[in-house]
Design a protein around this nucleic acid. Structure first.
Lengths: 224, 224
DNA sequence: GCAAAAGTGTTGAGATTACACCCATGC
DNA sequence: GCATGGGTGTAATCTCAACACTTTTGC
């Protein structure tokens, strides 16, 4: 807590890295970027970057998310801060990892010329990751499971209006297990978080009722 | 993720702060130190300090904990990283907050000459806190409640051997509510985490059986 | 023998699980 | 009319909450 300018023992670089989740094609996916620089050339990593000394960690994470996905109003929370002195071979960098939940619709991934590629990856088939990002991925997947069980943040993974089957699919993919459809629907309905709409989603079979969240703010409540 | 030496935009100072909890005198308490330096003169804060560029965040937290309490083998986990650029009026300092659980027995608090005092405070009667430590305190108290409900870390708040009533008292103080003794004991026994010892704790009344944890490693399991 | 805390079981309510049949639509 | 997913109810089980009396000790 020495705060004067002569003693600078705490001075290091600080970055944010973001694990951006979505569910699509019946799989849980994250965004990875492909590195150019040694020693991680051609390896993949979560998008991130050094913070600006004038912005907060949350703002740095929002900025990074916006740069990569173009989306703003999504669920974003701090995950964990990784501070092993050897985690980055190019010098001491402490990384605050965040995780974000986005609805997979019509999203264009972008990157800068510092990286050779950006893409969605199935979390069950991740390539070799740079830094300590394998650990980050594990941590994030675990936190996501807890969040789905104990909060309503699934709204951030779904389109504004959705069927109960779509919602159940998200739960099944993330929790990695099948859920009884009737029990799931009764449970969700009894929570009173959803408002049925007048619309129905047409498809090849019987149309399904569309629902929306009464409130798209995070609240803590046991779901499953 | 620019890691070369010419671009240093992420360079800031990084500190750890530790919320050290114990239960004693029928209250949940934390260690606070009293500041000397302006602008927080005479205000209280959680113990902490800048990290050494060569140590990990976890090591910095362990070092700080050892300095303040002399104890080593206790439960310690990262809580949250606070990164508001204005949180420290003396410059940009990002703080990784940790929380620790210690058993209140025979512990001598120590401090350095940088601070005027160190003491235990009831979390329900905190003095005015420096920095953003009011927010840190709130965050830590919440996390502690979750930890007690969903993990076995209460072992770190208890002596090695203890009565079920002592364990229940810890839960009641931290969760802030009364628990039925018979239901609590049946629940705890059914979890199979404890081993009854041959000893009993003598007192003014009927002696109580002493228990110990079979394993003093953190595991995730619903307790309450 | 009295006060105080320890020790122990049962019952009812509510929640969770397992399970099966009919319905609406596209083709 | 048939294949496919949508919509709904019930019975059995398990878990949780409420609750009271007896036992052991110190004084």
């Amino acid at each position: 807590m020495t705060r004067n300018k002569t003693i600078r023992s705490g001075e290091v670089r600080v970055a944010v890295d973001i694990v951006i989740f979505t569910v699509k094609e019946n799989a849980l996916k994250v965004i990875l970027i492909q590195m150019k620089k040694a020693p991680f050339t051609a390896m993949w990593a979560f998008p991130g970057g050094l913070i600006d000394p004038r912005e907060s960690l949350d703002d740095a994470a929002k900025r990074e998310l916006k740069e990569k996905t173009g989306v703003g109003n999504v669920y974003l929370e701090q995950l964990y801060t990784f501070g092993d002195p050897k985690r980055d071979p190019n010098g001491r960098v402490i990384s605050a990892a965040y995780f974000a939940l986005v609805s997979g619709e019509n999203m264009k991934l972008t990157t800068t010329e510092k990286y050779s590629d950006v893409s969605w990856f199935d979390v069950r088939k991740l390539p070799k990751l740079a830094y300590d990002h394998k650990e980050v991925a594990k941590y994030a997947a675990q936190r996501l499971q807890w969040k789905l069980e104990y909060t309503n943040v699934v709204y951030s993974l779904l389109p504004r209006q959705f069927t109960l089957t779509e919602m159940q699919d998200v739960y099944e993919v993330i929790l990695g297990k099948r859920i009884d459809r009737r029990n799931f629907q009764r449970k969700i309905r009894s929570l009173g978080l959803l408002r049925p709409t007048a619309k129905r989603q047409m498809g090849k079979h019987r149309p399904a009722k569309l629902y929306e969240f009464k409130s798209r703010k995070p609240i803590i409540t046991q779901i499953i």
